[in-house]
């Protein structure tokens, strides 16, 4: 198999937002934990087949630290997509930025995403980017190995394991339990944060107009965010023992807790 170019798209997420206010700092911003397995699976495939891994992230300047962590893990190149006009982008507008940036990079064989983010949790950016780039996507991949001119993949769904064979170029999102992300070596961290070697691209570099992204390019709006109030309520099951048993099984089964 020829050398691969694998692109991992990752996000820097905020750990906490006291009183609903988000102030991004290096202390409270981390690489999305669901993206770590994505980086790991990309690095493992590169190490097996050969080639390069490029890490790409859209976000404010502090998101560069997540890219440096990916570099410390072993990524060959990193690109930060940052521009004031990208602020407030919804998932579709984010996918538009990623699409434009990926089109500026050397042609890719595989595009890798985490399944979702720890802060907004939509899981949409990966599929939207894949669709916009016109490549097939397999989500929730739990195992991947090179095969033919592409790869063989497994994903688990509803208690079944599905196996796919997919030609490159393709896109995947990685199940968080698929692999254990590697620990970062101290020397690698020192080098990555010492060199701070990542490209910074704004809208101009990726050839996208301000209207196509940020708030103006986002068809959805978050109107309000408020905490969910949970109410605990006890429900008593009536009847004889057999009825109570069957009713309990029904309840648990309908709640998806057994079955």
């Amino acid at each position: 198999m020829k050398d691969l170019h694998i692109i991992v798209c990752l996000k820097s997420v905020v750990l906490e937002a006291p009183r609903g206010r988000i102030v991004r700092t290096a202390e409270n911003s981390v690489m999305n934990p669901f993206d770590r397995p994505a980086v790991e699976i990309a690095l493992a495939l590169r190490n097996e087949v050969g080639g390069t891994v490029t890490a790409v992230s859209m976000g404010p300047p502090v998101a560069g630290n997540a890219l440096l962590e990916a570099t410390a893990m072993g990524a060959d190149r990193a690109v930060l997509l940052t521009d004031a006009a990208m602020a407030g982008a919804d998932t579709l507008a984010t996918a538009a930025v990623l699409n434009a940036a990926i089109s500026q990079l050397p042609p890719f064989d595989l595009l890798v995403f985490g399944t979702r983010t720890a802060d907004s949790d939509t899981g949409q950016v990966g599929p939207q980017t894949a669709v916009s780039l016109g490549v097939p996507m397999i989500t929730q991949v739990s195992h991947m190995e090179p095969a033919g001119t592409g790869c063989r993949l497994e994903r688990q769904c509803d208690g079944f394991t599905e196996t796919y064979e997919c030609a490159f170029p393709a896109a995947v999102s990685v199940n968080p339990d698929a692999v254990v992300p590697r620990e970062i070596g101290l020397g690698d961290l020192e080098t990555a944060f010492g060199d701070k070697a990542y490209d910074v691209w704004g809208l101009e570099q990726i050839g996208l107009s301000p209207e196509a992204t940020g708030e103006s390019g986002s068809p959805t709006r978050v109107l309000t965010i408020s905490p969910v109030k949970t109410r605990k309520a006890c429900e008593f099951i009536e009847g004889d023992d057999a009825q109570k048993r069957d009713e309990l099984i029904n309840h648990l089964s309908n709640a998806g807790l057994i079955g």
Binding site: A26, E183, L186, L189
Partner: peptide, 20 residues
């Protein structure tokens, strides 16, 4: 404390949580 020191603390803590 630079961004490196912050990332370092996080990386060491991650190792300790997993291994130690």
């Amino acid at each position: 404390l630079t961004d490196k020191h912050i990332a370092l603390r996080r990386a060491v803590k991650s190792f300790c949580d997993r291994e130690i």
